[in-house]
Amino acid sequence: MLVCHPTKTLSLNRSISNGDLVIVYERHDSMKAVTVSEGSVLQNRFGVFKHSEWIGKPFGFKVFSSKGSFVYLLAPTPELWTLVLNHRTQILYIADISFVIMYLEIVPGSLVIESGTGSGSLTTSLARAAAPSGHIYTFDFHEQRAASARDDFERTGLSSLVTVVVRNIQGEGFPDEFTGMADAVFLDLPQPWLAIPSAAKMLRLDGTVCSFSPCIEQVQRSCETLQTYFTDIRTFEVLLRTYEVWERKMESLKGSNGSLPSKRRQCSAGSYVLSSSPSISSVMARPCAEARGHTGYLTFARRKCV
């Protein structure tokens, strides 16, 4: 994901080369991660795209299929990755992710502990925030998920920043070797309260913890457990509302005397007419009809200082 390769930073002069990970953009709700491989093709509803034609092109370039349709080739970012990754579990999305990074105060150099890894959606952003000198240790008890996550971090170029470990965190807690070393701990587990005592042990004083839970009962129990080791316990819900923008023509209304009607009475009396011209065109925004109504509650706390 670029972060660990200063030479690979985005630049007007950098072009796509064989082996690069690109995000193929059809529409904002239709994207796909593709690793460029000289002899391969991408086939979708728009036709066939030859990878060989992508090599040497700049990122952000529009490429055409055999049928003359086009897609854009974008450089991967954690935000794009979250939209294209394979869902092996429920994942965190941008609003929760951004808030978690900011509220956990993760900065370059931070040592962060996470469980479960799940599909690695959050991990990718944790890695970006802790890079180049920090590290993420992420734990999941599901062998296969851990392996897939490892493959993904390899593919996105984050493997030097992330270590995936198979371990039952609710049962065994985090490994003792991290005692007092973590700057931040993140939990996305079914019974987070079982892992909270261990999280407290891993954290340095004044370090931060966050637990993500979809259900309020989980929050209730977690908060009770947090009281023992933590201060500044706060629970939030964060959502995004998106807007669509249209240019609309509105007929301008003229009163019979040529001026805009000033009283409603005139309207009901029908004493003004719709003028056929000029119509006023303006750009308007309204919330999109569909929105995510709930993801989960984010509970943050800070390790008490002695």
Binding site: A95, F99, E237, V238, L240, R241, Y243
Partner: peptide, 10 residues
């Protein structure tokens, strides 16, 4: 995309 964040504390 235009987004409007919404934040509620409990």
């Amino acid at each position: 995309q235009i987004s409007e964040p919404w934040l509620r504390e409990y």
